[in-house]
Computed example of a mutant assay.
Amino acid sequence: MMGTRAHSSHPGLSVQPDRAVTVHRTLPEEVAVAMVFDGSSAAVMMATPADVQDLAIGFALSEGIVTAPDQLDGYELAEHPNGLEARFWLREDRAEALAARRRFMAGPVGCGLCGIDSLAAAARDLPKVGDGPRFTRDEVARATDMLRDQQPLHDQTRATHAAGLLLPGQGITLVREDVGRHNALDKLIGAMARQGMDPATGAVVMTSRLSVELVQKCAIAGVTTLIAVSAPTAHALRLATDAGLTLAAFARGDGFDLYSNPYRIVDEVSHVA
């Protein structure tokens, strides 16, 4: 067990067209993390063992187990030979919400919906997000580059995703990293909650494609704008449109694709068919 270390060094052989040389690479750690509420495991996921409390709080909020951090109590992180347990106790009225949305997600980090008990749970209705802040075209276009500048674990390993909070006129002010994109987003949501920051005041920036579960988590958290370096899925776009989220994809360098609710981007370029 590597405990809560986020990375470690390992030897390898770098094979090139004209030679093979011994190298040492820094690799991200990936451990099983169990989300335990009132003594019962609600989910098990593979995650980077850093900012685990942020991950657990963000998961509880984005999955609707709680609606505010003060409904969670008595956090502790327990290490086991096979992984970690993030333990919380729930306020009595929230225990029912946990029972209604029980998940057992032992599976790869690439699937944010593994193990959901019913298809109805995966297709849950999303709340309409609020009006939210406006962003300039330049802020959206540069968002993923700004995020890239604040990924120390990725700099060391080249193997992690990140989620960042973009505030109008301030740039990226908070970042969390993980081997899984869903985990990185949950960590960011949890970090905002612990610091008393309102997700509706900024945009979330992701290093990944925009999948259904990322849109779901953002809508439930109250995020109004979601920006990513890659594309949304078609169904993620439908959900974002219905929930009122602004989706900006392929944000790289000078431009981006704008797919839904464009009014939050205040200086859009003229559309040419």
Rank of each mutant, 00 (worst) to 15 (best):
G3L: 06
R5T: 07
A6E: 11
H10Q: 11
P11K: 06
G12P: 04
G12A: 11
D18P: 02
V31K: 05
A32Y: 11
A32M: 11
M35K: 01
D38T: 09
A47H: 03
D54Y: 10
D54S: 15
F59W: 15
G64F: 02
Q71K: 14
L72W: 01
P81L: 09
A86D: 04
R87V: 10
F88N: 08
F88S: 08
E92M: 00
R94L: 08
E96D: 13
R101Q: 14
R101G: 14
R102S: 12
M105P: 06
A106T: 12
G107N: 04
G110D: 11
G112E: 03
G115E: 06
R124A: 15
G132S: 03
G132Q: 01
P133C: 04
T136N: 07
V140E: 01
V140F: 08
L147N: 09
R148G: 15
D149P: 02
H154I: 02
H161G: 09
A163L: 07
L167C: 03
G171T: 00
G171M: 05
T173A: 03
D178I: 03
G180Y: 04
H182E: 13
D186C: 14
M192G: 00
A193F: 02
Q195G: 05
T201I: 10
S208E: 04
S208M: 02
K217L: 05
K217S: 12
A219D: 02
L226Y: 04
A228G: 15
V229Y: 13
P232E: 10
A234Y: 09
L237K: 15
R238C: 12
L239G: 04
T241G: 08
L245D: 06
L247G: 00
F250H: 14
L258R: 03
S260H: 02
Y263R: 14
R264T: 05
V269A: 14
V272I: 12
